[in-house]
């Protein structure tokens, strides 16, 4: 489904990713772990098309398409979702209008009609209920005044609504208490299916107790230095990155 080959990325002239390779097949859940500054978030942003992330070499192919040719919104419409580490607050734009605009933009890209307002309301209310979000929060401005946990829950509601084929979750677990962590894990697990893939980027093993990955990769200094199954995450938790011979502040 997703094939990343020899990916080199620079941000503001600084080399962050230095030849990263990653293959993710349909139905798989991958976790990328790594010390601060290893390039975890850069990988997420570069894959999803953020401006300022310059691809100097390599390729990203998604379902056979050259992904690097596409705008961020086109990548979203192709079925990729990015869960943000720090979801952005957007004053003045209500959550529900934002979600409607997002869903209909994706439908338009796919050559589908706008969803009828009534149908949309039904759908979004159902998704909010599944993830235990207070329906009142749909009326509020996007993420404005939301607690850390509420912002992440909102990310999960968006993911559930947009129903991506491939989800990248960039440290979605950071700063969450245990209840919020369960909600997030529940949101991710709902996306698991034989047709869909998930990439979880995390600094801690904690989330992986709830979202059990098929593969775990360690990212350090812009490359994947070690891959394994879930036991690799447990080993990391026990011995730390130093146990693998990786400096904690590689950048």
């Amino acid at each position: 489904m997703l094939e990343i080959k020899n990916l080199h990325v620079e941000v503001a002239g600084q080399k962050i990713l230095k030849g990263l390779n990653l293959n993710i097949n349909a139905g798989e859940v991958h976790a990328i772990m790594g010390p601060n500054g290893a390039g975890k978030s850069t990988l997420a942003y570069a894959m999803c098309g953020k401006e300022g992330y310059e691809i100097t070499d390599g390729s990203v192919t998604f379902q056979g398409k050259d992904f690097l040719e596409l705008e961020a919104n086109e990548r979203a419409a192709e079925g990729v979702f990015l869960g943000f580490q720090y979801p952005v607050e957007i004053p003045g734009v209500s959550n529900i209008n934002f979600l409607k605009a997002a869903l209909n933009s994706i439908r338009k890209y796919r050559g589908e009609e706008d969803m009828k307002a009534v149908e949309f309301l039904k759908l979004i209310r159902a998704k909010a209920a599944e993830l235990e979000m207070d329906p009142e929060m749909l009326k509020r401005a996007v993420n404005v005044g939301f607690s850390g946990g509420e912002k992440k829950r909102n990310e999960m509601v968006q993911m559930a609504l947009l129903d991506p084929t491939f989800s990248v979750l960039d440290e979605t677990d950071s700063g969450l208490d245990i209840d919020a962590l369960r909600i997030v894990a529940d949101g991710i697990n709902r996306m698991r299916s034989p047709e869909k893939s998930i990439l979880v980027i995390t600094h801690y093993q904690r989330l992986l107790d709830y979202v059990v990955p098929d593969f775990v990769h360690v990212l350090a200094d812009g490359k994947i230095v070690k891959s394994g199954d879930k036991s690799l995450a447990i080993q990391l938790e026990k011995d730390g990155y130093a146990g693998l011979g990786i400096a904690e502040n590689a950048a």
Partner: peptide, 17 residues
């Protein structure tokens, strides 16, 4: 970028903001 990552094209994202 947040809006674009949810599927809104640049014009729509700008207009919304």
């Amino acid at each position: 970028f947040y809006l674009k990552s949810r599927g809104l094209d640049k014009m729509s994202a700008k207009a919304l903001l």
